[in-house]
Simulated scan of single mutants.
Amino acid sequence: MSRADTILECEDCVAPADAFALVSDETRLSILEALWRLDDPVRFSELRSEVGVRDSAQFNYHLNKLTDQFVRKVEASADGDGAASGTEPAGYELRTAGERIVQAILAGSFTEHPRREIAIDDPCTQCGSELAARYDDEVLAIDCPDCGHGHGEYPFPPGGLHDRSDAEILEAFDQRVRHLHCLAKDGVCPECSGRMNTTIERAGECCLGTSLRADHVCEQCNHQLCSAVGLGLLDHSAVVSFYGDHDVALSETPYWRLEWCVDDESVTVLEENPWTIRIDISENEETLRVTVDGDLSVVDTERV
């Protein structure tokens, strides 16, 4: 069954084309943005004033189009809270769908297409030269200008560039990459929360610069991510404890500084059918050996 068929199975759902048509009007987008700014719930009169529409009937028409799908009407309480006269409900507030629309606008995904280059004062894990980052088409990529080794390229909304220095952008990108891939490895799609499946593949020509990669694909929305096989271990308790024992705060160490997150020289394939893979994580002459299976579930850890 295709994803389109799955969408149409829901009898109570609004068709995607109709849902997007509801927010194609400038006044309706202004209503959603106003509800985002103001404290919930917002009275009709206050909301109309905030949006700046003088005609009450016209404003009511647009608000009604959004209500139930993107906006929720909050009725007055039985004790007469705010609307005892019955002239209007206690107010209006955003539903989750309305929040998603405003978040997408603020993220810049629909309206912004910036490009940016950032120098990174960190060495390439392969040759030791300084890394560089480039931003284009909502993707931030890190690689080595000298040897060409890739250190990953991952989605990053344009809003992440707003009011941030280069260093702050890199810090935010690092945290986002950790979040995305640890969620994906745990089977949760970071876009729609659907079921995410993980498989191991021979990389071939790949932006990661590795010969082996983990592919994460959502069954529901088909969102896809790929990574070096070690990247999903950044939140594993044994790995975090290992670095902590060596006085290294793993959460504050950019993933591109960690060889096991950006290349596969520390990766050993023990079996291929089914996959059994060992990642050797070394620090101060001690090594943590982490063994994972074909969906990156940890099956064993050992310090040597």
Rank of each mutant, 00 (worst) to 15 (best):
M1P: 13
S2L: 11
S2Y: 08
A4W: 06
I7A: 07
D12G: 10
V14N: 10
P16G: 08
A19H: 01
F20K: 12
V23S: 12
D25Y: 01
R28L: 09
L29R: 15
D40E: 13
R43D: 11
R43P: 11
S45V: 15
V51S: 00
Q58V: 12
Q58N: 13
N64V: 00
T67F: 02
E75N: 13
A78F: 07
S85E: 12
S85P: 05
G86M: 02
E88H: 14
A90Y: 13
E93G: 07
R95D: 04
R95E: 09
R100F: 13
I101D: 00
V102D: 03
S109K: 13
F110R: 02
P114N: 02
P114R: 03
R115L: 10
R115C: 04
I120T: 10
D121A: 13
D121S: 14
D121C: 04
T125C: 05
C127H: 02
A133W: 08
V139P: 03
I142M: 02
P145F: 04
D146M: 07
H151C: 07
G152A: 07
E153S: 15
P155V: 12
P158M: 08
G159E: 04
D163H: 12
S165V: 07
S165C: 06
D166K: 06
Q175F: 08
R176Y: 00
R178V: 04
H179L: 09
H179S: 13
L183Q: 14
M196R: 04
L208H: 06
R213K: 11
Q224E: 14
G230I: 03
G232M: 07
V239C: 03
V240W: 05
Y243K: 08
Y243E: 06
G244M: 08
H246T: 07
H246A: 09
D247C: 03
A249K: 08
W256I: 05
E259M: 05
V262M: 02
V262E: 02
E272H: 11
E272Y: 02
T276W: 00
I277V: 12
I279V: 15
E283R: 11
N284A: 09
D295N: 11
D295F: 02
S297H: 09
V298P: 05
